[in-house]
């Protein structure tokens, strides 16, 4: 038995309720798994919702081929240990054309490698609903999103036409060509995620904990040199710094923070005292004004 606080128990029960509603109302759901801390909690909540039955849907991971190597190793181990059904979706055409995060602006790279691959993965699988780990506290346009977020043909989001969502009642009846993104963790905060990981003793990718790692500084942000695909400037050498990550994505687009927090306790303490929001380390969000909303309208998560 775990010792969840009543606050976390409430959030957990709400998430389980949402998972069950979606599984009952949609024919072919899929869980979008991105390996990070939010996905770890999302997967754990999904297993709780259907236990002792098996997860009634597969996992879908959009692999840009630029993820941290430790993330992929972690993913493959978790999937094997838990006996999960995983679909990996990569935009192989774009990989063949060498679309990469160094030569292309973040918005172009993200659209091709993430948004397009995600749309293709959802279309190929014929999925009518996709679970995601997005939280309303992450970013201003996400703060506006419903739990059942309807997408028109082509996965586009129109924030002016969101379905009313009253009380605990979730209406999943689809119109023609509509699909749904389901966000069971809408009301969790970053601090809640860490408290929950700690109390439920969940394993997360080691990149969240501070360790000496090879880094370079670019535009005031620290990037980890995860492999030799990162081009070095003349005379530039990776510097060992004690760093960790608050969010995980593609390594060239995810900034590290210098930190001494080597274990969960320290990370939680640091997070609760943080003066900077977590998405500050996501380079793609700062590309242009309203960047996240634009990506969401086009079908990004």
């Amino acid at each position: 038995m775990t010792a969840l606080t009543s606050h976390l128990k409430l959030l957990e029960a709400e998430s389980i309720h949402i998972f069950r509603e979606a599984a009952a109302q949609f024919r072919t759901p899929v869980l979008l798994y991105s390996i990070g801390k939010d996905s770890t909690v999302l997967l754990h909540l999904a297993r709780k919702a259907f236990w002792p039955a098996k997860l009634p849907f597969p996992l879908l991971h959009v692999d840009t081929t630029w993820k941290f190597r430790e993330m992929i190793a972690f993913r493959d181990r978790i999937v094997a240990e838990m006996g999960l059904d995983l679909i990996v979706q990569t935009n192989h055409d774009a990989v063949a054309k060498n679309i990469n995060p160094f030569d292309y602006p973040p918005s172009v790279y993200t659209d091709i490698m993430k948004t397009q691959a995600l749309r293709k993965g959802l279309d190929d699988g014929g999925f009518d609903a996709a679970f995601g780990g997005a939280r309303r506290d992450e970013e201003a346009s996400r703060a506006k999103e419903r739990v059942f977020s309807f997408r028109a043909n082509g996965h586009t989001w129109d924030p002016r036409l969101q379905r009313p969502e009253m009380w605990q009642l979730l209406n999943g009846r689809l119109g023609k060509d509509e699909t749904v993104r389901v966000f069971p963790m809408s009301n969790w905060t970053e601090a809640d995620i860490w408290r929950y990981i700690m109390l439920e003793q969940l394993e997360v990718v080691p990149l969240y904990f501070a360790k000496e790692r090879p880094t370079v500084e670019r535009d005031g942000q620290l990037l980890m040199v995860d492999d030799d695909r990162i081009p070095m400037k003349p005379g530039e050498q990776p510097v060992m710094r004690k760093v960790r990550f608050r969010t995980l994505g593609c390594y060239p687009l995810t900034a590290a923070i210098e930190s001494e927090a080597e274990d969960l306790d320290a990370v939680v303490t640091e997070t609760l005292g943080a003066k900077v929001s977590e998405r500050a380390g996501r380079l793609i969000d700062h590309d242009e004004v309203g960047a996240m909303e634009k990506k969401k309208r086009e079908g990004y998560f």
């Binding site: 606050h7 506290d137 970013e139 996400r142 703060a143 506006k144 009301n187 601090a191 309203g290 909303e293």
Partner: peptide
């Protein structure tokens, strides 16, 4: 801080509800 949609910022109005979370010393 609340009007997170581009259309809301452009028009200076609130279109949809915004959810915000914060804690004080005594409650959430």
């Amino acid at each position: 801080l609340l009007d997170g949609l581009v259309a809301e910022r452009e028009q200076g109005i609130t279109i949809d509800i915004a959810w915000r979370y914060f804690e004080t010393e005594s409650r959430r």
